[in-house]
Amino acid sequence: MPCEADEEEVRGVKVSREALLEVMEGESDLPPDDEMEGEKDLAQGNKMELSGLSLSYGGKKVLEDISMPIPARSITAVIGPSGCGKSSLLRCLNRMNELVDGARVEGKVYLDGEDVYAPGFDVVGLRRRVGMVFQKPNPFPKSVYENVAYGPRLYGVRQKKVLDRIVEESLRRAALWDEVKDKLGSSALALSGGQQQRLCIARVLAVQPEVILLDEPCSALDPISTQRIEDLLHELKEMYTIVIVTHNMQQAARVSDFTAFITIEEQGSPGRLVEFGETEEVFTNPRKKKTEDYITGRFG
């Protein structure tokens, strides 16, 4: 279980935010193989890696032979014209494509060096380590509190005190606490769209993921809410590996450290990776003509 009560009592309930973060980190129930050391290594390396990844739905190829790294503790943006399969790509990372009938994945997706598509790989554990925020805010029709407590409850946390702490900490990290602390018990659906999206981020943070996937998280939001989410992403990348799909190139340029550009040859052909690199490179000095065309707005 992610949070043990006695641990919490030892450290006290009302401690500084940093201390809480530390507690939450330390209590993660990841495999115990030298976690701290591993994390340090990964800070310089790749958290995930795609190798020759192809995806088809009912025999129709959507993605073809995608190989790219996902560097740890940074933001990787996936950009490309609509219909190029960028959202599908994201869903390959936490095996959400499996929910679609007839979806077939070839190639490999590594998380900390382990192929997540290997037979016997624990999907539940994967989805817990690789959280997802969707295009349209989708809080459950429950209270603000219950939304954030959903994941921890799923993994068996029952003690009120522990849940309270996780909820508060997650909401703080999602920069939502101050706005909702007085209405934790009211319906999440009463929040504004931007607040709902941050609540969804808090809901993901509550299970202490390592990677957060965001599928056009701002496409349904107004500019101010978008700004807040982008600021939030900047803070979150200190602790998490983030992959964001966006159709908004300015957003990709603003928030991301790395950019992957995916496109299709023509309507109906599978999406391919054209270019992957540091965002500044990709945007100022693209290696491929296609990337340049897309970025300068000549197509897409």
Partner: peptide, 25 residues
């Protein structure tokens, strides 16, 4: 469908999703 998706994406099983989200809703 988005409720189920959100639940699945957090690692919930089908039954957990039904019991905690779909049926209450």
């Amino acid at each position: 469908e988005s409720f189920a998706e959100a639940s699945f994406s957090m690692g919930a099983t089908r039954w957990q999703t039904l019991r905690r989200v779909i049926i209450p809703t």
